[in-house]
Each structure stands twice: as structure tokens, then as C-alpha cells.
Simulated scan of single mutants.
Amino acid sequence: MPQITWEAPFCGEGNNCFRLGTDTDGNAYIAVNGQEDRPLTDSMESLRALIRDIKAGKADHLL
């Protein structure tokens, strides 16, 4: 597994916490807090697009 630099956990209502991370190869990661050994990975641009879409309300129907 590559060396991942994790951000502090982000916790929503009900203590659903996740973490975002990056590596030196330009990959982005997202994992449930405490399960960083099993992250989802994609490019940094894909992670940026995901965050932009969430901020724009495109995932509100999932909440």
C-alpha cells in the first residue's frame, strides 16, 4: 500500500466519519474513519469533482 497522508476525520450527524487522503503519486483516497486500510482510490481530479458535486447538492438525495 502506498504512503497515504490522511486529513482529520470529517464526521456528519450520527457520527458517520470518513477521511480523505492523498499520496505522492497524485492519487486520492476516501475511507471510513478507523478503516483506512480499506480505502477507495481514484485520481485527485475525480475526488475534486466528487466534492464539487456534493457541495452543489447533487448528492442530497442520498442523505
Rank of each mutant, 00 (worst) to 15 (best):
R52F: 15
G12I: 05
R48V: 14
N33K: 09
Q35P: 11
T22S: 10
G21T: 04
Y29H: 06
L20D: 00
A59H: 10
Q35C: 11
P9S: 02
C17E: 00
M1E: 14
R38N: 11
P2E: 13
V32P: 04
K55Y: 02
L40E: 02
N16H: 10
H61T: 00
L63I: 00
R52N: 15
I30T: 05
R48H: 11
G34V: 04
V32D: 06
K55E: 10
P2W: 01
L20S: 01
E45M: 14
G21L: 06
Y29W: 11
M1W: 15
R19D: 03
A49H: 13
F18H: 02
V32K: 09
R38D: 12
V32Q: 09
A56H: 00
W6G: 01
G34L: 02
G34K: 04
G14W: 03
M1Y: 15
E13C: 15
P39V: 03
G12H: 07
R52P: 09
T24A: 13
A49F: 13
F10K: 09
R38S: 11
A56Q: 06
I54R: 03
E36Y: 07
Y29A: 02
P39F: 04
N15Y: 15
A49G: 14
Y29Q: 01
N15F: 13
S43N: 10
V32W: 08
R19V: 05
Q35I: 07
I4F: 07
Q3T: 15
P39I: 01
E45T: 15
A49I: 14
L20N: 03
T24P: 01
P2N: 08
I4Q: 09
R19H: 00
G12F: 06
M44H: 10
K58G: 03
T5Q: 08
D37T: 14
L62W: 01
K55W: 00
R52L: 15
T22G: 10
D25E: 09
Q3A: 12
A49V: 14
V32I: 08
T22P: 07
L47K: 05
T22N: 12
E45S: 15
L62T: 00
L47T: 00
C11H: 07
I30D: 01
A31Y: 01
E45A: 15
A8L: 02
Q35V: 07
A8S: 05
E36H: 02
E36F: 05
A31S: 02
E45D: 15
C17Y: 10
I51C: 13
